[in-house]
Design a protein around this nucleic acid. Structure first.
Lengths: 104, 104
DNA sequence: TACATATGATACCGTTTGGTTTCATATATT
DNA sequence: AATATATGAAACCAAACGGTATCATATGTA
């Protein structure tokens, strides 16, 4: 349960993986199609996709010899729910908001 | 600008750092006080605090020989804003929501 | 002034991460 | 059946990460 939250946060911590999610937001894609958009090898992309899947940020759907990678909302949900705890510090502690302007 | 987003995501990717944020949500604390709550050395906590500061998740305020660590909302804001792009896939693509139930 | 305390910084270590190359396997296509 | 294509997996490497121990420094306190 909490391990899923960790996997989601970890998956989002890499800029390439976040870019992959942006790509997949427009259309579902195969590994080869995704790899063509980045200056890294298909093997490296595959590792990123594995982490994204572990973080529940994508789902993978076999179709013949291809594997379709599709955006999945659960991972973002895990992160959003963890962060929602801090919403109160936006509302309650106005001093926190002031810090945005005061500190540096 | 985008480097700040990366620093915020990276800072949140470690469970100890997220626990530190939970602690700081209740009260601002010195490094020593935070370190007393974890089974790791003060030096390790200091490294975590450095990353949290780089990610704009905390602000540090010197007070005599102590340094007060305080929650700062900007880091969470960075992450929330990046993720807000995906809100439309909650609303528009209902198929994405179905995946939560269908896949696995 | 001398000593205690709170923190900072550096060197070091094992593990994880992001990447490559290479080889294997499964599915289309001719 | 033979070949091409799409993917998986493993071995390997340099860099980053999470941690420790140690030493230095700045601020209170007796």
């Amino acid at each position: 349960m909490s391990a899923q939250v960790q996997n989601s946060f970890r998956a989002l911590a890499d800029p390439t993986r976040r870019d992959i999610l942006m790509l997949l937001s427009r259309q579902e894609m195969t590994i080869g199609e995704i790899a063509a958009e980045f200056p890294i090898t298909r093997a490296a992309v595959k590792k990123h996709l594995n982490m994204l899947e572990e973080g529940q940020l994508i789902s993978v759907h076999p179709s013949g010899r291809e594997r379709i990678n599709r955006l999945q909302p659960q991972g973002l949900k895990n992160v959003t729910e963890w962060m929602s705890y801090f919403d109160q510090f936006w509302d309650d502690k106005l001093s926190a908001l002031q810090d945005v302007f005061n500190n540096q």
